[in-house]
Amino acid sequence: MEGKFSIGDAINYLVIFIFGFLCIFPFLYVFSISFTDPDVYIPLKFTVFPEKFSIRAYTWIIGTDSFINAMKSSVFVTVAGTILNLIVTFTAAYGLSRKEMPGNRLIMALITFTLVFSAGIVPNYILIKDLHMINSYSSIILPVLTNAWSLVVVRNFMLELPRELEEAARIDGCNDLQVFARVVLPLSGAVIATFTLFFAVAHWNSYFNTMIYITKSSKWTLPLLVKSMVVDSGAIGYAGGAGVGGDQKSVPQETIKMATIVLSMLPVIILYPFLQKYFVKGVLVGAVKG
């Protein structure tokens, strides 16, 4: 509206800049230190850029079985979990998109109720235990097979789809399944992309369920490994990770920890441009109805 750049503008830009800088600085710092050459690494010395560049921390951590196993587990859980999430959520969202179907209102009410009330940590834990799912990856995939929020959002989208298209396909001889597979799903491309990312990020970052249900360290996912390497030894200052043992004299603990964190964030960083675009859409679609 007005063209001139006032003092208010300057303060505004500065505050946003500082907040943005603080958001990104820890990542830059970790990224930078993870590439420090062990030969020039000095504990307690403050540096922002490594004096000598090296990828030895990375080659060391990639060479450990515990890291490779955790990476494999994380990839498996994320891929399998996301596929199942998509199947269950989209079939149900379409299935429940007929408002005139008997029982639809009751079913939706029961599903929405789980948004505001859940049994809590202990009953869920006992259920998983009684189902003998402890230490099986099903224990971290099945309890989050779908969720009320996603289902309601995708269903709202399906309700908006023009029925005429489905009717036309039926007249052309499609059965119910063909209508779903050839008309409804192709029209849902953007929503499928959005929720693929939602589900995948949730699985990749999942921590609490994995911690209580997966007790064998050989079956840990990346968050559990990072937690044991960094968090368990972090607060008190004790250096040594339960997850990774062996000779660490040649490469300092700190750079290894940072390299592990960078690697565990890698898929998210690579996907970030897509994540940002689709997540913003997803949040706004979800916001339309409360």
């Binding site: 230190i33 968050p223 960094v230 968090v231 972090g234």
Partner: peptide, 14 residues
Amino acid sequence: FISWVVTASLTFFT
């Protein structure tokens, strides 16, 4: 988009 585990780790590095 970063997990709480990584956030906690970054806090330790800070």
